[in-house]
Design a protein around this nucleic acid. Structure first.
Lengths: 254, 254
DNA sequence: CGATGTATTGAACTCGATCAAACAGTGTGG
DNA sequence: CCACACTGTTTGATCGAGTTCAATACATCG
C-alpha cells in the first residue's frame, strides 16, 4: 500500500461520519443530517497510530478531545515514583481527553493497543459547535458521564473485589463491550497483554495467568493466548457478581 | 433558632453567589457580575441536609447537578452483591451529579458527612445558560475534569500503592484541600469516620488505625480522634511519594 | 536456529485481612 | 451521679490471598 493510497483514503474518510460504522455509539449518534455535516467540518481524522504509539501523554498541552474511531487504547497515569496504573481501556465510539479541561494540560496518557485511528475535535471549535447544536452538547455530556461510570466501576473493583471477581468482571465487561459493537459476545480477542490486564485489575501478572487456567479447568473459559471463548456465561457472571451458588470451582483439576 | 430564621436565611442566601465564600473555587469563579446575576437566577439552594442524609442515590432520576456549598459529602457506589465503595469525598466548591447524563439516572450515591448545603442547578436550565455564558460552560468542564482527575488518582492509589502510601496520600490530599480553601494545611479536622477512610482507601479499618498510631509514634502526626495535626510535612510527603530516604520509620516504638 | 518477548507454573514469603477483645468517648435514663 | 448501652477506635494474634522470585514453556521473527 503506497503513500498515495493512504492520503486518498484519508481524504475520503474525512467527511464521513455518515458512513462510519461506529457513528451509532459515538458523539454524533442521533444527530440530524444537517447538524452532522456541520459537525463533520470540525472533525479531523489523523493518520492511524501504530501499536504502542501515544495519542497524547500526561503533561501535554490540551487542545482537543478525541473519539476512538478504530482500534483500542489504554489510558494510564503515573505516580510520583514512576509506577504506572492503567485506568481504562477504550474502544471505537469512546471519548478520550476530557481530563485536560482543568489545567489545560492532560493528566493521563493515551496509548494504542493496536493500530488505531481517532477523530480529533478541537475544543475551541467544539465549544462553538455545541452552542449551535444542542444535541451535540448533550451527547458530549453523555460520553463524559460514561467515562465517569467506567471509573466508578473500576474503583469498586479495585477497592472491594477479590482476584477472581476482578478477572471475571473484566471479561464480562469486555464481552458486553463487544456485544454493544455488534460482535459475538462469547468470543473475545484481547488486544491487550496479560501485563496490561494485570495492571488494570491491580493484580500480578502471575495471578491473572493462574486464574485463567483455573477458569479454563472449570469449563468457564477456553483460553488460547489472546483468544478467549466464554463457555459458561452463567458461571462467569456468577463469579463476577459473587453469587455463592455458582462458585463450585475446583482448584487445578479439570 | 426558629423556623422563621431558617426561611429568612434561606431567601437571603438564595441570590448570593456574590457573597458566597466558596464562589472563588466553584462554577462561578471568574464570572462577570452580570453573568453571575443571570446564573444566580437558575440556582436553587436547598434546606441543609443533616449528617447521613442523601442528596440523591444510585438509580434516582437525574435532573440536576449540585455544587457543595458547605459541609462535605462522600460518593459511594454499590456492587451487585451489596458491598459499597466510597469513590470520593467532596467539599465546598466541588461539583457532584455529573454521573447522571449517560442514562438520565444517577449511578452513585451522595451522602453528607456533616450538616451540608448544596446549590442545585437544573440541567435544562443550565444548558440554556451555558449557551449564553461561554465562560460558564468552560468552568463546568473544568469541574468535571477535576472530578475525573480525582478518580484517576484514586485508581492509582487503589491499584498500585501499599497501605502506608495510601494513608499518607490521603492525608496529603486532605491537607492541600484545606490549604486551597484558605485554612491551615497542617491541622486537619476529619469529617469522616475511620470506617469511611478505610473503605475509601480499600483497607481494613484496623489497618488505618494501626498506621495512624505508627505515624504518631514516628512523629509524623499527632492523632486525637478526628483531629490530626501534621507534625512533619516532609516525612508525610516522603511516604506518600515513596521516597526511600525518608522512610526511616520504626515499628510500634516511639 | 537461537533470540526475544510473552505466558505459564511452582515454591516461599509477606502484607494486610480477619477474628477477637478491650477501650474510650457519648449519650440515656433511673 | 453513676450504671448502662452504644458507637467508634485501638490493639493483639492468627491466617491466607496474592505477591515475589525463579524456572520453564511457547510463539514469533531475525
Amino acid at each position: 500500500m503506497s503513500n498515495l493510497d493512504e492520503v486518498v483514503d484519508f481524504k475520503s474518510i474525512n467527511n464521513s461520519c455518515k458512513s462510519c460504522h461506529s457513528a451509532k455509539f459515538c458523539l454524533v449518534q442521533n444527530l440530524k443530517d444537517k447538524d452532522l455535516m456541520d459537525f463533520n467540518s470540525i472533525v479531523k481524522r489523523r493518520k492511524p497510530l501504530q501499536r504502542g504509539e501515544r495519542l497524547f501523554q500526561s503533561g501535554d498541552v490540551f487542545h482537543s478531545v478525541y473519539i476512538v474511531h478504530s482500534g483500542s487504547v489504554k489510558i494510564t497515569i503515573e505516580s510520583s515514583d514512576g509506577e504506572q496504573q492503567i485506568t481504562g481501556f477504550y474502544f471505537p465510539g469512546d471519548l478520550v481527553g476530557v481530563d485536560g479541561f482543568e489545567n489545560s494540560s492532560h493528566v493521563y496518557t493515551v496509548e494504542t493497543l493496536d493500530t488505531s485511528s481517532f477523530c480529533e475535535i478541537s475544543v475551541k471549535q467544539f465549544e462553538a459547535a455545541a452552542k449551535k447544536i444542542p444535541l451535540l452538547q448533550q451527547q458530549f455530556f453523555k460520553l463524559i458521564s460514561r467515562e465517569i461510570r467506567h471509573e466508578q466501576e473500576l474503583m469498586l473493583l479495585l477497592g472491594r473485589m477479590d482476584s477472581r471477581r476482578r478477572l471475571a468482571s473484566f471479561l464480562v465487561a469486555m464481552s458486553s463491550q463487544l456485544q454493544a459493537q455488534g460482535y459475538s459476545s462469547h468470543s473475545i480477542n484481547l488486544s491487550m497483554t496479560r501485563h496490561d490486564i494485570a495492571n488494570y485489575l491491580g493484580l500480578a501478572i502471575e495471578t491473572v495467568s493462574r486464574l485463567l487456567t483455573t477458569f479454563q479447568n472449570n469449563d468457564v473459559l477456553d483460553v488460547m493466548r489472546r483468544n478467549i471463548t466464554i463457555k459458561d456465561q452463567r458461571k462467569l457472571h456468577g463469579i463476577a457478581e459473587n453469587r455463592p451458588e455458582e462458585e463450585c470451582m475446583l482448584e487445578k483439576s479439570a
